[in-house]
Computed example of a mutant assay.
Amino acid sequence: MNKITPKLYGKYFNLLALFSKKKAAQKAFEVFSTVRKGRVLPQQQEYLNRAKDQVLEIAGHRLQTYRWPGTKETVLLVHGWESNSFRWRNLIGFLQEANYDIVAFDAPGHGYSSGKNLHLPLYGQCIRKVIETYDPKYLVGHSLGGMAILYTEYNWPNKNVEKIVTIGSPSEFHEILDHYQELLGFNDRVLKAFEAYGLERFGFDIRHFSSSKFVADNHKKGLLFHDELDVLAPFHASEKVHARWKGSRFVRTKGLGHSMHQPEINEQIVAFLEE
Rank of each mutant, 00 (worst) to 15 (best):
N2Y: 07
K3A: 14
T5V: 09
P6L: 00
K7A: 10
F13A: 02
F13E: 02
L15M: 10
A17S: 15
K23L: 13
A24I: 09
K27W: 05
F29C: 15
Q43D: 15
Q44Y: 01
Q44K: 04
Q54A: 14
V55M: 13
E57C: 11
P69E: 15
T71R: 07
K72I: 03
H79M: 05
G80P: 09
R89K: 09
I92W: 04
F94W: 00
L95V: 04
E97L: 08
E97K: 14
N99H: 02
D106N: 07
G109N: 13
Y112G: 02
Y112Q: 03
S114L: 07
S114G: 10
S114V: 05
G115V: 10
Y123K: 11
E132I: 05
Y134H: 11
D135C: 06
Y138L: 08
S143M: 10
L144K: 03
L150P: 00
Y151W: 15
Y151N: 01
E153I: 09
N155S: 14
N155Q: 15
W156P: 09
K159T: 14
N160L: 10
N160I: 12
V161D: 02
E162L: 01
V165S: 09
S169A: 07
P170A: 07
E175P: 05
I176G: 08
H179Y: 10
Q181R: 07
L184H: 11
N187H: 00
V190H: 06
K192R: 08
F194V: 12
G198Y: 15
G198E: 13
R201Q: 13
H208W: 01
H208E: 07
H208F: 01
S210R: 14
F214M: 06
V215Q: 08
D217K: 05
G222D: 10
F225D: 04
H226A: 13
E228C: 10
D230C: 07
L232M: 12
A233W: 02
P234F: 04
P234I: 00
F235W: 04
H236L: 02
K240G: 01
A243M: 08
A243D: 03
R244I: 03
S248M: 14
F250A: 12
F250G: 11
K254T: 01
L256A: 13
G257V: 13
A271T: 03
